[in-house]
Write a protein that binds this DNA or RNA. Structure first.
Length: 426
RNA sequence: GGCGGGUUGCCCGAGCGGCCAAUGGGAGGGGACUGUAAAUCCCCCGGCUCUGCCUUCGAAGGUUCAAAUCCUUCACCCGCCA
């Protein structure tokens, strides 16, 4: 069963590097294997980049292995230099603690913590890092590290060439190595996985385990996902795509997948979908036959929105998309359908007694544009629409006839950026 | 500690007393074409009470009719020397 897991991951393009594939296969074939992946609290939520790794965790658990999810309550206070060309600014203790709680909560949705023998375990590296004194750290841990080797790590050497690195971030790899050692001791955990940028940190852990415990452990890294045009995956104009529904709405999340570049779709399906190879290949074939229909986009959007936000939210997002982008007349829609669709969008409200603000003010108020200047620009360029009709006059004030069901306006910037205005009864 | 170089709008990077809201590229946005793709072409890209005004060129002062451009101090970065 296990080599089937590895074969599947390979087919999906989810394996970047392993320390020793033969030994790893052997280990996995022995039966349920404990493994860990760490997530540092650097924001109030995980994002799509984290999701790639998190779903690999899930795949391992579904294949019978036992996940240990580690939240970096300690490492998050220090800052990982990997993949960064400048020093991170330190976050406040209380803030990081708050983020730890939120991230724990998110992780718990993707893994099974209640199941049987291979139920997932949650840990926090602050548990063993906080009690450690500076002297213990230097004598018991630091002694096993050669600065020469530490300097040769990619994460450090690249920083020596760009803006330099503080002693704090330089020490990061030691903390992460210690985590692996602790989990090896406490949980007999012999496998750590992570993004391919984590290679150096993970290997530092393997070395430490060998030196201190004389033990052998394994490492598997997952490629960092890029878009086919070479840009960073998971970013939109508005920034990162978050898993938290308050930071990226389920509707926006669904739209992210639906709007993905055609060229990325086959890879995204392999990386994110839990459908099997036959199903995925058939979707890819359908997509190639008629890309305009975006069957594969829709399938992927649906699967992931359901997974991350639940079936109900997914259906709402999907119906909203149909209602708002369907080419029918908005006034013909059923009120319930329209209200549900609009509820997915960013909105602003106006009291019924108040006169409606001008076109430019409305656009700016909903946040589809950043400022009134931007609103003027967009109107002048012919990119602003009210209820799907282009409006070119900046000072235009919507009349009551424009109100859908007497209380809504649908604003659009460009092809796909929507917002709504609701007139509230007094 | 000493000497030299640097800090410009989201990013890179010109400008080196008035013609500078500041050249150019990238990212981003709008339009056209398509499919709520991509590529391509055209346009835009600090803010506002918008033919004008306000705030920006590391920070704070100063010189000048006038400063991103000159002077002083401070902070940070990067070299070389100790």
């Amino acid at each position: 069963m296990t080599s089937a897991l590895i074969a599947d991951l390979e087919w999906r393009g989810l394996i970047a590097q392993t320390t020793d594939m033969e030994a790893l296969l052997e280990k996995l074939n022995e039966g349920s294997t404990k493994f860990y992946i760490g997530f540092d609290p650097t924001a109030p939520s995980l994002h799509l980049g984290n999701l790639v790794v998190l779903l690999v965790m899930r795949r391992f658990q579904l294949a019978g292995h036992k996940p240990i999810a580690l939240v970096g309550g300690a490492t998050g206070l220090v800052g990982d230099p990997s993949g960064r060309n400048e020093e991170r600014s330190l976050n406040d203790l209380a803030l990081v603690e708050h983020w730890v709680g939120r991230i724990r909560n998110q992780l718990s949705k993707f893994l099974d913590f209640d199941g049987g023998a291979n139920a997932a375990v949650m840990t926090n590296n602050l548990d063993w890092t906080k009690p450690l004194t500076a002297l213990e750290f230097l004598r018991d841990v630091g002694k096993h590290f050669s600065v020469n080797q530490m300097l040769s790590k990619d994460s450090v050497s690249s920083r020596l060439e760009s803006g330099g690195i503080s002693y704090t971030e330089f020490s990061y790899q030691v903390l992460q190595a210690l985590d692996f050692l602790e989990l090896y001791r406490r949980h007999d955990c012999k496998l750590q996985m992570g993004g391919s940028d984590q290679w150096g940190n993970i290997v530092a852990g393997l070395d430490l385990i060998r030196k201190v415990e004389g033990g052998a452990a394994h490492c598997l890294t997952i490629p960092l996902l890029m878009k086919s045009d070479g840009s960073k995956f998971g970013k939109t104009a508005g920034g990162s795509v978050w898993l938290d529904p308050d930071m990226t709405s389920p509707y926006a999340f669904y739209q992210f997948w639906l709007n993905s570049d055609d060229a990325d779709i086959p890879r995204f399906l392999k990386v994110f979908s839990f459908k099997n190879r036959v199903e995925i290949e058939s979707l890819i074939a359908t997509h190639e036959r008629n890309p305009g229909l975006r069957e594969a986009h829709r399938s992927l959007a649906r699967e992931l929105t359901s997974l991350v936000h639940g079936d109900l939210e997914c259906e709402a997002a999907e119906r909203a998309a149909q209602a708002l982008f369907g080419h029918g007349d908005l006034f013909e829609l059923e009120e319930r359908t329209l209200v549900a669709a609009l509820s997915q969008l960013p909105r602003t409200t106006v009291a019924a007694g108040e006169p409606l603000p001008s076109w430019v003010d409305l656009l700016a108020a909903t946040g589809v544009v950043d400022s009134k200047s931007a609103a003027r620009r967009i109107v002048k360029e012919g990119g602003a629409y009210l209820n799907n009709e282009k409006v070119l006059e900046e000072s235009f004030i919507p009349t009551p006839e424009s109100l859908l069901f007497g209380r809504f306006l649908l604003l659009r910037k460009g092809k796909r950026d929507l917002a709504t205005v609701e007139v509230l009864p007094e």
